[in-house]
Design a protein around this nucleic acid. Structure first.
Lengths: 100, 100
DNA sequence: AATTTAGTTCGCAAATTTACGAACAATATT
DNA sequence: AATATTGTTCGTAAATTTGCGAACTAAATT
């Protein structure tokens, strides 16, 4: 998954990567929440969402790997926020893609 | 994948479904093309894209299942276009989600 | 030093995705 | 009727995703 065969542009590959990060309801929910309020703790999410905390942790890791969120350690908790730089990039890419 | 547990809204589920359809570079490329020009033939895509035509056919099927495109049979070819109703819905959902 | 708290990582199973070539279907042409 | 064209479906393999509980880590508290 990452055609550098010139047919699919790097912009399209990046858009697809972001879309993939958004393609699971749990992850979309987390992003949606972080876009509304500034930050949240992993524990807050764990209480609300009907999944094991190990599963949640994996989803958060994927969002981090996609560059859409970042976690700040506040022992013993972890505070998650959007990675604003990449969130703005995602806004730009989807705006272009969807012709908004 | 489809939490009707009231925590994740139907809107969020739908947004995630669209995101999933967009989450593969090949599918994103097809959508991008159809958003730029009105329609295209399966064969045109097959010539351009570096994948087997059976694989392309599967991707097109997924886009159809997600409701984002529709295929019109013009024997012996198939002409694909965006499903404008759902494309507009996707625009709306992503606009809301990304706060554009 | 033992315990508690908050999260992550590991190991595993089940399901889904991605990809291909071969076989098939439907229409158009010879 | 045989052939060619265009796509889809089938069968299969490999990789990835999703999810869980158990085990682990790190810091704070007792």
């Amino acid at each position: 998954m990452n055609w550098e065969n010139k047919i699919i542009s790097e912009e399209q590959n990046q858009t697809a990567r972001f879309a993939k990060a958004m393609s699971h309801p749990i992850r979309l929910y987390v992003l949606d929440l972080l876009a509304k309020q500034t930050c949240c703790y992993s524990g807050d999410l764990s209480e609300i969402l009907p999944i094991a905390k190990s599963t949640l942790s994996q989803h958060l890791k994927e969002l981090k790997n996609a560059g859409l969120i970042q976690g700040e350690i506040e022992p013993p908790k972890v505070k998650y926020c959007l990675n604003m730089e990449n969130w703005k990039l995602a806004q730009k890419l989807f705006k272009n893609f969807l012709k908004l």
